[in-house]
Design a protein around this nucleic acid. Structure first.
Length: 509
RNA sequence: GGCCCGUUCGUCUAAGGGCUAGGACACCACCCUUUCACGGUGGUGAUACGGGUUCGAAUCCCGUACGGGCUACCA
């Protein structure tokens, strides 16, 4: 009795995937996995003029980075292919013709110029965007206004034409949205949408219904921007396949930027990533920054997206993908749009870095260090360094500053930070400290600290005033973890070397 | 303009008729730490407005305002 749960994400390969897109994928995925269903990716490339090379690959790379692996797709195969609409082109026309035959659609021969003329002609202050609808269709160039013979002749001559749905008048179309409850529309107010374009390709409206049927989609989820065209889709289901076959719908709230629906431009404008991964438009050359390159962990990215519009009802905020699958439910998706908050996004990443083991972070950190000209030769060392500094890193690139000095002697020392309080007594203290450390047997943080404090006490100096200078000597600046931990990890030779270099600089100044 | 959706701290949200409106981010203060963080404690801060329904409303209904989306042979 229960249909198998099958959901689909149906992106148009026109560019990178932004926050909202990935969240739509995520909710689809979570819903499917929670119910033991299938997650399908279908490429909606019915608009050939908007084809962008590389966009499809980008989409799949993003899904892989996020760990949201489709069960069926162009890449992953499946029994309901092909999963690219351009390759299903032949399947759409018959349905459109069927609708014409049953009186629910008609041929329209209006040229783009004629349409433009109509819009200008009927445009008024009260009606700034005239629609091709029941009020106007009898004034247009279509099979409703032409005789059957004229229409047949035009068709036989291969005249360019589209097929439009004939929206009924004065009907109320309603459906139950899983998030919003019942939503109703008056069909008199909906226009006669094009179903089949002049190039023989379907529009989204026809394709989504035909393919959702063909692929046995049980639940159809998409962004709220699709809500206004829902009545068209509902009617197509009714005319073509029957309402009992129709999937259940849910329209996700939009993710808003600082001003309205989040756009890729908002990123550059307000200084945060909008796409999942870096993307450069091959035509315009426009670059849009991605969360991955910005230094986000996919776990954090998924986590923050999940909580942008959904919550379990508890105070938990950190969830792994597995946990999300277990706890997600469509009923708890919020109905109002959510404004994206980059500060909170960073907090999620910081939390994930803190709770990740060095092993999880190692590869990424190593790449970052290498990219910055730092060589990691000792894996054990890298592991310890990561554990030591990860609490201080919000984004992955923070590791370059926080961990870099372990792998390369600083080129600059922030001498200005200690110079004003420098004096003979401190000079002597460090000379003695070096002598002491040279003879130091075990080189462990706590004994280094003990010796440091003993010598300070013997010279009647406050340890606190000596720790910053030591830090500058080892790190180069006022940052990093505990200074004796650093010395311990750096090793005796390198620690003494850095102290001597710095002390020399102090003398020469 | 029309249609649709929405409205709890600045932001993400909890509370699905009974109350000191809870949590998180951010911010502020203090503690810890003589770096910076982490951590800990505390604080500022919200039910858009007006009507109903009810013993009682953030919660249900209506209106207003405001916000957003759609209004292509784009998705």
């Amino acid at each position: 009795m229960n249909k198998e749960v099958r959901v689909r994400f149906a992106p148009s390969p026109t560019g990178g995937l932004h926050l909202g897109g990935v969240r739509t994928v995520l909710y689809n995925y979570l819903f499917a996995k929670k119910l033991g269903g299938k997650f399908i990716v279908r490429i909606e490339d019915t608009d050939q003029s908007r084809f962008v090379p590389g966009a499809e690959e980008y989409i799949f790379d993003t899904l892989e980075w996020c760990g949201l692996i489709p069960d069926e797709s162009v890449r992953h195969g499946g029994a309901y292919g092909p999963y690219r609409q351009s390759e299903r082109k032949a399947s759409y026309r018959p349905y459109a013709e069927q609708l014409v035959a049953s009186g629910h659609a008609y041929y329209a021969f209006d040229t783009p110029e004629e349409l433009e003329k109509m819009r200008q002609e009927f445009k008024t202050a009260d009606n700034p965007s005239p629609q091709y609808d029941h009020t106007l269709r009898m004034q247009m160039h279509n099979s409703l206004t032409l005789s059957a013979e004229e229409t047949a002749a035009l068709l036989a001559a291969g005249t360019r034409h589209v097929i439009r749905i004939r929206m009924p008048e004065k009907e109320t179309v309603s459906f139950t949205d899983m998030i919003r409850g019942q939503v109703s529309f008056d069909t008199s107010l909906v226009d006669d949408k094009v179903l089949l374009k002049a190039d023989g390709m379907p529009t989204y409206h026809l394709a989504v219904v035909v393919d959702d049927y063909a692929m046995r989609i049980s639940h159809a989820f998409r962004g709220e921007e699709w809500l206004p065209s829902a009545p068209v889709h509902i009617l197509l289901w009714k005319y073509l396949f029957g309402m009992e076959q129709m999937p259940q719908w849910a329209h996700f709230p939009l993710i808003l930027g600082p001003s309205g629906k989040l756009s890729k431009r908002d990123g550059a404008k307000y200084g945060f990533p909008v796409f999942a991964m870096n993307w450069t438009d091959p035509k315009s050359g426009e670059f849009t920054e991605g969360f991955r390159e910005k230094g986000f962990l996919p776990e954090a990215f998924i986590n923050l997206l999940a909580l942008l519009g959904w919550n379990e009802g508890t105070e938990q905020e950190i969830y792994s993908l597995e946990e999300l699958v277990q706890k997600f439910s469509m009923e708890r998706v919020h109905s109002a749009g959510a404004k994206f908050d980059y500060e909170k996004a960073k907090w999620f990443n910081h939390e994930w870095i803190k709770q990740s083991g060095a092993g999880r972070l190692e590869a990424g950190v190593r790449n970052l260090l290498t990219e910055n000209g730092l060589t990691v030769s000792d894996d054990k060392m890298l592991e310890k360094v990561i554990e030591l500094v990860k609490d201080r890193c919000t984004l992955l690139p923070d590791f370059v500053q926080q961990a870099g000095f372990f792998f390369r002697r600083p080129e600059q020392f922030d001498i200005a930070a200690i110079k004003p309080k420098w004096n003979e007594a401190k000079q002597l203290f460090f000379a003695e400290l070096i002598r002491n450390y040279e003879l130091h047997p075990d080189w462990e943080a706590h004994t280094l600290e003990n010796n440091f404090k003993e010598i300070a006490a013997a010279n009647e100096l406050k340890p606190g005033e000596l720790m910053l200078p030591l830090r500058i000597m080892l790190v180069g600046g006022k940052f990093g973890p505990g200074v004796f931990e650093i010395a311990a990890l750096l090793g005796k030779q390198e620690t003494l070397k850095r102290m001597e270099i710095c002390l020399g600089m102090m003398n020469n100044e």
